[in-house]
Amino acid sequence: MSATAPASHGPGHPHAADQGKRDFLKLVSGAAAAIGVGAIAWPLIDSMNPSADVLALSSVEVDLTPVPAGQGITVAWRGKPVFVRHRTEKEIKEAQDVKLSELIEPQPDSERVKAGHDQWIVVIGICTHLGCIPLGNKPTDPRGDWGGWFCPCHGSQYDTSGRVRHGPAPLNLYLPQYAFESDSKIKIG
């Protein structure tokens, strides 16, 4: 039961002159077969990517009129919570006045809101630490020392601009892609 190289088998060896041509043909057919296997595998793999109906739902419109100042709403977008907070004048001022050097991930408030719509902060409501959903969007929730959001899992705290102010989260809350369709309506995605 000893294994020997397959080439040493069979009646009559191929002639040496033939060998080169034969190897080339084997190479070509092997390459073509590899392409074939890829062509079979790709549709299988791609079928697991988001389908057309999932992609078609990848943007949502949100009406802002029912949100009073100082409160927020949570909307589902691509299966994730998005926090939309109507900030008070005081909260806006706090967010704008903070020294960038104090921040864990320095970023001015103006880069996190849309110009002319300072009162609206829109962030993806997932803690950048380990993916929990921070509290603070409901009036009864704890909002942490900086008046924004507070993550119950490991105590990360965010300010009213969604910037992380107290670890262990390393980064500010992510901003979704969104645009104002009118003063009272945004389209996320």
């Binding site: 549709p43 299988l44 079928s47 990517n49 389908s51 057309a52 109906d53």
Partner: peptide, 13 residues
């Protein structure tokens, strides 16, 4: 029908 219409290459599968 969703496989046929929406899933990537669903019709092929």
């Amino acid at each position: 029908e969703r496989i046929m219409r929406d899933v990537n290459y669903g019709w092929l599968l």
